[in-house]
Structure formats: C-alpha cells, structure tokens
C-alpha cells in the first residue's frame, strides 16, 4: 500500500484512513482525452481499485495542451497505454484494463455491466447516446461531462433509479456537428475543471456521499466565469427512458 493511500484522503469525513469501498470499485472511463485524463488521475489517486480505460486514438502533439495525462514521450502510443503508465507510477496495485478500440454495442454492454460507475469523457453524440443506452439497460450510474471553447456542462444520471433523467432527456437526437475540441478549440483548463468535477461525482456515488448532480445540469461559461445549475427532470416522453415510450434499449 502506498503512502498516499495511508494518509487521510481529502474526502475524509469519518476518521477512517482509507475507504475500502473505493479499492473494491470498478469504474469505466470512456475517452482518454481532455476529460478522461483528469478523471483517471484523480480516481487513481483516490484509490479506486479497478479502472477500465477506453480510447481508440494514439497520442498526438496537438493533444498535449489539454490532455494532462499524456506527455511528449508518449507521442504515437495508444492513449490508454500512456494512461496506464501514469497510473502505474502512482499506484501499482490498481487493476487496469485497456481497450484501445471503439466500444461497439456488445463490448460496450459487457463493459458497462462489469462496472459500478461509467464516466462519459467522449467527444461526440453518437458515443454519448450509445453509452446512455447501455447504462440504461444495465441500470448503472453515468457521469457525463462535456466542454467546448469556453463552455462546460456536467451532470449525473443515476439510472439505477427510475426517476432519474437520462442523457436522451437532455439531448434529443442530435447529430454530430463537428463539435469536438480539436475542431472548435477549447480553453484547456476548462476540460480539467469539468473532468475533475466528474471524478468528484464518481467518488460521491461510490461512497454514497452527499448530493450528486442527478436531476441537475451544471453549466459553466468560463469566458465570464459564470456558472448556473438548472433543474433537469426526466422527460415523460423520452424515447429512451420513459415507460410510456417504445423501448429503444439494446436489441
């Protein structure tokens, strides 16, 4: 056991030195870019015992400005492999599974079913809708973050609870409009902020602490440093999660 796990973690509330629940927990992190990087680093440092990392890309020079888990020495490597090396340096006891591929339906479903919490760090709607469907099907908590230019969004869907909204309640069928960071730009610390908040929500869910963002949507406009929290209710006509709508769950 490493010393950073022996000392009280910053989330310490009860006087325990360490949360064994985290060491037993399994988190699936999809996307190892600007959001996935801080999510992974924080969850590894917090002592989450099992991390599955997914990304089909290799590290490029243009990633380094915001994807803080990768370095110049990682150029050309799979992003998930680069991330594994950093986790190993922090905490060799963490069990890591790497998936350097796109998660097609069956594999996505399998990985979601094996996880306690899923963290959506992807950069496109197609992936986000597929992840939402898999999490709905398996009734798993989903922590969803996004950032572009100066705008950040964050919410939590506790899909094990029937009253929770889902990603489809927030976004109707929306095509990808070239809205990835590499097309539109991103003020790099903002993905760090959103990703760090995603990790925070994951830890709260795993430890059943406090009040998550489920049912609320956090918006950050970093340009004027304004933030707003909206109420996000389940859409009674949601094509994915409403019992009144035809099910479009995994077929």
């Amino acid at each position: 056991m490493y010393s950073f796990l022996d000392s009280p973690p910053p989330i310490l509330l009860s006087g325990d030195l360490f949360y064994p629940q985290l060491a037993q927990s399994r988190v699936l992190i999809i996307g190892m870019g600007g959001l996935g990087a801080p999510v992974t680093l924080h969850l590894a440092r917090a002592g989450v015992g099992h991390l599955t990392l997914v990304d089909s890309d290799k590290v490029e020079l243009s990633n380094l400005q915001r994807q803080i888990i990768h370095t110049n020495q990682d150029l050309g490597q799979w992003k998930v492999e680069s991330a594994r090396q950093k986790i190993r340096q922090l905490a060799p006891q963490i069990q890591i599974r790497l998936l350097p591929c796109r998660l097609e339906t069956d594999l996505l479903s399998e990985q979601v079913s094996l996880s306690d919490v899923i963290v959506d760090c992807t950069d496109n709607f197609n992936s986000r809708f597929a992840i939402n469907q898999a999490c709905l099907y398996h009734k798993k908590p989903l922590v969803s973050g996004a950032a572009l230019r100066f705008a950040g969004q964050l919410t939590v869907f506790l899909l094990q609870e029937s009253r929770s909204p889902c990603y489809h309640c927030l976004y109707p069928d929306t095509p990808d409009m070239e809205m990835a960071c590499h097309n539109n730009g991103i003020i790099s610390p903002l993905v760090g902020v959103i990703g760090s908040l995603q990790a925070l929500e994951v830890i709260k869910i795993l430890l059943n602490l406090g009040k998550t963002l489920c049912g609320r949507l956090l918006l950050i406009d970093a340009y004027n440093m304004q933030r707003r929290i909206l109420t996000l209710n389940k859409d009674p006509l949601c094509p994915s999660c409403s019992t009144k709508s035809p099910s479009k769950l995994l077929s």
Partner: peptide, 25 residues
C-alpha cells in the same frame, strides 16, 4: 432555471436562458 422544451410557455417576470449543445471532451 429549469430545463424545458421549445413549447414551454413564458410569463411575466420569467427568466429564459438559451445555451448551446456541448459534446467535446
């Protein structure tokens, strides 16, 4: 401060907010 659809009705004193889809990561 509540997420709504385009057909929601706006009344005296209400605050309306518009924001863009964001999917980057």
């Amino acid at each position: 401060k509540e997420y709504v659809q385009a057909d929601a009705i706006v009344k005296e004193g209400d605050e309306v907010a518009f924001f863009p889809p964001v999917t980057g990561g």
